[in-house]
Each structure stands twice: as C-alpha cells, then as structure tokens.
Design a protein around this nucleic acid. Structure first.
Lengths: 344, 344
DNA sequence: TTTTAATCAGGAAACGTTTCCAGAACAAGA
DNA sequence: TCTTGTTCTGGAAACGTTTCCTGATTAAAA
C-alpha cells in the first residue's frame, strides 16, 4: 500500500471522512469517544496529512522565491551579504513572497534539486548563486516557465546574471600591489576545482596572473596556495609561506575572511602589516572595515538587491535586460604599502 | 469572477481541459495551431497555474523547515551564525527538508505570518528566532500540530527553547571588567524596546546592572547608549562617549559588530585599546577572532545545530526534553586590561 | 479503395483534503 | 406522546490540476 490517507484512517476507525478531518482540525462537533478512536487510528497507521492536499480546498497560496546555493553558504560572508540584499528587496516589494533556501552539495545534487524544484512547482522564481548551469538545465527552467537569475556570474552566460567580473577584480588587486612595487606576491584562495564547479577563485587567479605578466613578474607557484574557504586555512597557509626562503612581501586573499586569517598569522609571527607584508582582501565586508583592510568592493549587498528586484520584475512579466552592477572597486585602507626594499 | 482556472482558458480557447494542460507542460501531442490558440488564451486571461493544484496529482511533496525572524536578520552576524548551524543540521539529516525563511517586520506582522504558516500548512516544523510568543500563539501552533523550537530564548518560556542566558552573559562580561578594576563602564547596545519586542539587549543590560551593583558602582546613565544594530551606530556613539568630561575606561558592546565599530572610533580618536580603554564584545564571531577581541561566546552555530536537530526529532515524533546549550563563556583576548589609574 | 497506424483532442477519474448539507440520534419541553 | 431543538456523523461536492482512456481525424500502406 502506498501512502496512508484520511480514507484509510476513516475505515480503520470505523467513521466517516468528515469526522477524521474534523478531528484533525480541532472542530468542536465531535464526541470525545469518537475523537479518541480517530486519534488512535491516526497513531496506529502513522497517518500524516498531506500538506498539499490541505492547501487546495483552503485556497491558501504559498509563494516563494527560491535561492539555491551550496550547503555551507553562510560560511561565506559574501553569500550572507548577498542574501541580505535579496531579503531587503523581497521585504520592500511586499508581495507576500518568502524565501526558500535550497542547498546542493554537489553538481549532481544541484541537478536533482533543480529537477525537484521544477517538478514541484516550488517557486515563483529562482536565484542561482555561484552554480553554473548547463544548456539542458537552462532549457528545463525555461520550459517550466520559471524565471531565474544568476548571482555571481558574469562572463559568457546565455542567461541573465548579476555580479561583477572576478577576473577584473583579481587583476585590479594585484596590479595595485605591483604598482606599489611588490614583486613577490602570493595568492591565497579556494581550491579551484571543487565538487561544485565554482570558478570564482580561478577567475580571480587569472586576473592575478594577468597583472603579474603585465608587470613582467614571473609566476612563482610556491606563492599560490589554495584550500577551503576559512579563516583557519588562511592562517595555516600563511605560516607555511613564512617558512619560505624568500617569503612574499604581499598577499592577495580571495576573501576578507581569509585576509583576516592571514593578518592574524602574520601578527602571531611578529611580522608587521603593512610594514613587512602588505595584505589585500576581497569583498569589503564589515570585517574589512573593522581591520582597516585594503580590499576589493564587489557590491555584494547591492548585487542581491538588484538580482531579487530584477527577478521580481521577470515574475511580473517584464521583458527588460538585467540591470548592471558597478564595476568592482579597489578600497585602499591601511594594510598595503610599498615594500621595504625593492627586490627583483 | 475569482481566479482564472484552466477551465476558463479551455472555454476561451475552445478546447478541452487536457489540451490546455498539455500545452502548459510542453507535451508533444498538440498541433501548432491549437498550441498557439491556447497560449493566446492564457495570455489574454492572464492565467497563472495554481502551484498547489499541480503538485497534488503529481504527488511531489515539498517539505520545509520554517525559520521566522525579522527582515534584517542577516545584519545580525549572530543570526547568520545560527542559520549556518541550522543549515548544517538540515543537510546532515538528509531528509530532503529545505529551509523556508519567513520574515516579520513587526509583532503584528509576526502574528499574521504565523497565521499564514499554520493555515497553509507551510512547514513541517518552525524555528522561531528572537520573537517571543503569546500563549495564544503557542496554542495555535500546538493545535495545528506544528512542532516548534525557539532560538535565543531561554528564561521562563513554557515552550521548548534553545539559547543561552543573556542576562548571565551581560553579567559575566561586566563582572570581568569590574574585576579588572574598571569603574567607568559603558554599555552600547540595541534599542531595548523596538517594534519587534526583542529583549536580548535588555536582558544583557540587566546583567550589566547586576554586575555594577555587586561591585558597588553607581549606574551612570550617560554610559548607557542605545541605537540600531550596526557598526556605524557604535562608531558614532563612541565618539560621543569620548566627549564626556569623564569618558569610560571600558565599554561593553552587545555584539562583536558593534565592538568593531567602537574600536575603529577609538583608533580614529587616537585612543589606545586596551591601554586607554578596554572593549568587550559579544558573540565570538570571526570578527572577534580577527580583531583579537575579548568577547562572550554564546555558541551561536551550535545553538542553530542543536535547535534544528531537536526540531527534526520532534517532527519524527520524539518526546524528549530539549538539549541544553553550554553556558555562555568569557573569551579573553587582547582588548581588555586593568585601567591605567584606579579611580573611584 | 480499404486497412492500418499515427496523431490529436476531449473529458472522466484521480490526487487528498475541507466543507457543507442532510440525516440520525437523543434530550428536553409541551 | 409528539414536537422541537441540539449534537453528532456520514458522505457528496469542491478545490485546480494531471493523466489516462477513448474516439475522431488524418496519413500511410496495401
């Protein structure tokens, strides 16, 4: 037998359908004995009412904007910031739309989540954070007529995306360091090929390489260190970097969080920032403000607001191109300065 | 006429019900002309399929854990942290439950959201962050058989809550300062009576007062400054505090974020931390780690994990008491020390 | 031309509830 | 005893879709 329905309960308790329903909804017009009998049947059969079926005659609608990300999304301050913008736009629109958060722990899981979302008609619109989509996946969403917008995508997508150019951001940060005169510049970021297929770290790394090339600095792979996205990882890696015969004079981190770990490790090793080593972060979160950290502002909160606003417009039937986010910007604070000695 | 249904579309297009459905689902067995006619009717009537009704025969279930907070939840690092724990527990349980985020912009809105959630049978279980509930509201959730757990509640609730004792945390932080010898201790926190009816700030403030009383320090209301929950506000307020004839020698902030603002303002005014002024925060977020901030750890991430785990157990039918979170803990770092001169 | 197969369309049945109407049972009042 | 009213109960109708079965039409094959 498939799922237990109200009918099974009614039969098992020897009562009518309406009675079971009344018991479940605490209607007063049921005798105590009958009620007890029904409750017993519910317990015995392990009956769980079907939420969808209940909603139908009640005519209550449930409308969500979906956000799909990886499960540890909130480890990334950048995603918190973006979500905050989304939430702001949603509250402001006042359309009774709530937020459904879906998490996908791998590319395959992402696909099955997408399938489920389409199949269940779960959302009015979908924001896709970080994940890339295949043509087939895009096709499926289109066919199901579910509007969607990408967040933190920019280049070469055939679907509407809002975000900044990571390659450019990586380039700007690194160029600033080369212009200050640094030549031993390290890059600390996330693993580039991960289970999700995210390319953010890689894109910034490409920008980093471009700036080095432009300044005619040979790429030293010892200065490129990758790990998971955490304060701790950055801390540990920095300690390793300090062991090198020629440690870097500047470090570019792919997030403020990692930059914070770097600074802490440097402080612990009694290396002064920025006198001995310059540090530059990415995101311009409150962490950067608090630390006085030089960083790249990629307008995170605004990106969330714009994406959600645009998605709402699409849902309402608009047919306009997506808004554009301002370019990433270098924010100079107190963790960068020219190196002590010019070295080749 | 009420809502436009598939039947109206069928009549308007002069076709059968099944045909309309097939068009909507991109089934191949529809002639191009008919399809066009149906699409035209859909457009003309502004038809939008009812997601609930679609789910019923498709038998796809949609299961959510609801989290209800105020709309600017993510401004509060504490809530991000908690949510991260919730997300972790949810992913780990692997029951196909996703997260639905509801926001309530006032106590009245909270009530109507609750009503909506119950009415629509929107969630399998509900996590209530920060909001308090009336007996009536508790009753309604119970009647609807929706398991729920409070987050950041502790004292004197008649319903299961997980969180730490804010009064105790405020007490511990302040007592640490008095034990160091401070007597001019400021409190910077959120407005105590806000539109939401949150009491966190007030509770910590009560702990602050208790510690002062114990140390026989007269409460100086000039040292108590409240505002919205932001880095900026704390920054500004600190500048004001520095204008006082007798500025405080220590500041207790109700969040790390605000403590960061305080430290920035002090640094800008060339006041040294902790030599001139000690600062203590609350939350033990990464911000605190990065700043070397002395703070109170209230096990935020763990609280989210425990609450979600317990909620899942309740949903599964468990009948156990809620787990308890370890007490808040003082984490001493580098922003606190005895005052320079002992003053009365 | 006749048969067979393929394509398209209509509508009943099903999905699992809630709600409403009507009837049964019973008690109380005349 | 007969009314009247009250309380409880059973089940049909409705909610808005999808899906399947059937029949009609058309095209292809014999």
């Amino acid at each position: 037998m498939g799922r237990v329905t109200i009918k099974d309960v009614a039969r098992h308790a020897g009562v009518g359908l309406g009675t079971v329903s009344r018991v479940m909804n605490n209607h007063p017009r049921v005798s105590p004995e009958t009620r007890e009998r029904v409750l017993k049947a519910i317990r015995e059969l392990g009956f769980r009412p079907n939420a969808t079926a209940r909603r139908l005659p009640r005519k209550t609608e449930l409308r969500y904007i979906g956000v799909i990300t990886h499960p540890f999304l909130l480890n990334y301050h950048s995603i918190s910031e973006r979500l905050r913008g989304v939430q702001t736009a949603l509250s402001a629109s006042d359309q009774g739309l709530d937020l459904a958060l879906f998490s996908a722990s791998s590319a395959a899981h992402f696909d099955s989540q997408l399938h489920h979302i389409v199949q269940a008609n779960a959302v009015e619109g979908l924001l896709i954070v970080d994940f890339d989509m295949s043509d087939d996946q895009v096709q499926r969403l289109r066919q199901a007529r579910i509007p969607f917008v990408g967040l933190n995508h920019l280049r070469g997508r055939s679907w509407p995306c809002i975000g900044t150019d990571n390659e450019y951001g990586g380039y700007v940060a690194t160029r600033y360091l080369t212009e200050l005169g640094h030549r031993r510049i390290a890059y600390i970021g996330d693993n580039m090929v991960d289970e999700y297929g995210f390319s953010t770290s890689q894109e910034r790394y490409i920008g980093y390489k471009r700036a080095l090339t432009e300044a005619q600095i040979h790429l030293n792979t010892r200065y490129v260190r990758l790990g998971d996205h955490s304060y701790r990882m950055a801390y540990d890696i920095t300690q390793e970097l300090l062991q090198l015969a020629q440690p870097p004079t500047a470090i570019f981190a792919m997030s403020d969080l990692q930059a914070a770990g770097i600074i802490a490790a440097l402080r612990a090793a009694d290396v002064h920032v920025p006198a001995d080593v310059s540090v530059i972060g990415y995101d311009d979160t409150e962490l950067a403000m608090a630390l006085g950290l030089t960083t790249i502002c990629q307008h995170l909160e605004q990106s969330g607001r714009l994406a959600a606003g645009y998605l709402l417009a699409l849902i309402a039937g608009a047919d306009t191109p997506p808004p554009t986010l301002p370019n990433s910007q270098l924010i100079v604070r107190q963790t960068t300065q020219p190196p002590k000695h010019r070295l080749s």
